[in-house]
Design a protein around this nucleic acid. Structure first.
Lengths: 334, 334
DNA sequence: GGAATTTGTGCAAACGTTTGTATTTTTGTT
DNA sequence: AACAAAAATACAAACGTTTGCACAAATTCC
């Protein structure tokens, strides 16, 4: 019932714990023969390394903290899976914490992770976050930080981003090509690069078509279903749009609610494109055109960046993952 | 840059580390005065406990491991939120690992958590799991275990269950009342109590209506969209059903695919009820009748049970969380 | 006022590793 | 066969806590 330690193995084999330790680590300073003997005996006794002791001695742990706004978002849970895919086989353990899109919880999460001496922190900012003191703390402690998706550019760290700009650009261009005239945009908080880029992609496409960006067609803070519903109603009152590019699928869902209420035909009278390719987007009626983010790949890239940070030092690359437009029924005018 | 330890505090105050340790723990064996002095100085120097060292010495940690099949299931991510709600304020840290519905990954997850000396393990079994050796290991190590939802009854531990029986019973009864005659059931692996109970609830309702349980109307292992699609096709060929109660919403989704393909009118010609109230269920067309599980509450109960286990010993209560039938368009025949 | 008790601290070991340095054993060279 | 070099192993300290036990000082009791 008691736990097997390297000392137990050492005694059985008449060697010292240090030899056992080195043998298990595959150190070539111990002979091939003893290495085999040790691994053999370790398996026989059912030895499991005491990670706690090891990380105390080494002064660092193989636990990586990951803070996401919510784990029940398709995008985030897939990023997590991607991160695990790389981190687990590499011997790291992932601790996931939710900030709930809440600045205070985000701060607490960071405190908690620091108290637990995590080896590194992977972070996607909450929408609320407008102060960055708590994140500087991480940097000052010398703990590797990798930001992804919802990133603050002023903070020095590795960053992995979606190609929000191109996704938004293609989505808007698609609406233009489909013949819509007055294309609105429901965006997110522009303090977050992700949403700012989506706005910029939208703007670029609109301008390229020879039109003007009308303030009345743009609504900045509407990424939930409810906010989307309210926002599109306001925009329809003031700017007479016939299509909308939403910075999120939930927002687009709210738009569809409003359109159904007004008995507008989709896509004939009104076009809608969302962002994120949430699972529901292909299940609803009409199916929702949207921009797919390669969440899983983003996760693997994030993890790889983290490992580089943990091994070498100061890897501060900024990577961009491509996005892809998926055209469905909500925007396809023949 | 260097980390403050209790030794630093001790030196500054001319006491020993042991006193500091006791003071910070609020031990009454150290005088109120020194206790204040210590906490004061700790705050001043920005001391943060080294959790690693503490748990090495104490032989246990305040980290709780949680293994779920997938975090991107609405149900599981909400249970997680509920668990966090209780565990975090109580000073525990939650480590989440996915088994991916895979026995081998589940075993690895347990190994990893044990290697990390977690204080307790919260577990919902993968569908694949049909051997329980790895879980016995947890018990044998004396580590508190709380099972939830997908539970094995033979394993001695606290358990928190959904009232799957009543949910399934009400769902089936509702189909009967709505006038459907030949009601099929697409279930999950009956080795898991959750699915077995759903089958039993279905059976009870069918029998109460004076009908017989027909093997040809029951299909045991179909909980994904694809499996649901295939299963209902088979059942329709062999048993001529006019309604189905599915043990999961994804399965019901597959059924809807098949029904649309056959141009059957829902709910007039065929009724469908799912289970889980996945977010998409109210978004699809027709909206899906389903059974709601109170995932968040389940999470809080799970966490509470875990804390009881960690504090007292051998708390092996079995709790049941009520479920609720939600009637939508897929089953409502007027 | 002296013995017995309580109260507050200190000492030192322990938790299970890792790792720099020292020591022993083996190998190779002449 | 002697000796240097290389290879394999041992020794011991360290990581930052916690905690049983010892001890001194302060308090209580008769």
């Amino acid at each position: 019932m008691k736990r097997i330690t390297i000392n137990d193995i050492a005694k059985e084999l008449n060697v010292t714990p240090s030899t056992v330790s080195r043998a298990l680590a595959g150190n070539t300073r111990v002979s091939v023969k003893t290495r085999e003997l040790v691994t053999q005996k370790a398996k026989e006794l059912g030895y499991q390394q005491n990670v706690i002791a090891a990380s105390l001695r080494k002064g660092k742990s193989d636990t990586i903290g990951m803070i996401v706004p919510r784990i029940n978002r398709h995008f985030f849970s897939n990023v997590i899976s991607g991160v695990e895919e790389i981190l687990n086989p590499a011997g790291y353990t992932l601790v996931i914490v939710q900030s709930g899109e809440n600045l205070i919880k985000e701060k607490k999460a960071i405190d908690m992770l620091l108290a637990n001496h995590v080896g590194g922190i992977i972070l996607s900012l909450s929408v609320q976050t407008n102060t960055y003191q708590h994140i500087e703390t991480v940097i000052n402690r010398g703990i590797p930080l990798v930001q992804f998706d919802r990133v603050n550019l002023d903070i020095k760290s590795s960053k992995v981003l979606n190609d929000n700009f191109t996704g938004a650009y293609l989505a808007t261009k698609h609406l233009i090509k489909s013949g819509y005239q007055r294309i609105a945009h429901l965006g997110g908080a522009r303090s977050l690069k992700a949403y700012d880029e989506r706005f910029k992609g939208y703007s670029k496409a609109i301008e390229e078509s020879g039109r003007l960006i009308e303030d009345a067609l743009v609504y900045e803070n509407a990424i939930t279903r409810e906010a989307g519903y309210k926002a599109i109603n306001q925009v329809m009152e003031r700017a007479n749009p016939d299509a909308v590019f939403c910075a999120g699928d939930y927002s687009a869902l709210g738009v569809l609610d409003a359109l159904k209420e007004k008995n507008l035909k989709i896509p004939e009278e009104f076009g809608v494109v969302g962002f994120a390719n949430e699972p529901f987007s292909e299940l609803i009626h009409p199916t929702l055109s949207t921009v797919e983010q390669n969440a899983f790949e983003m996760g693997t890239r994030v993890a790889t960046a983290m490992i580089k940070n943990l091994e070498g030092k100061h890897y501060e690359e900024e990577e961009v993952i491509p996005t892809r437009l998926i055209v469905r029924d909500s925007s396809w005018k023949k």
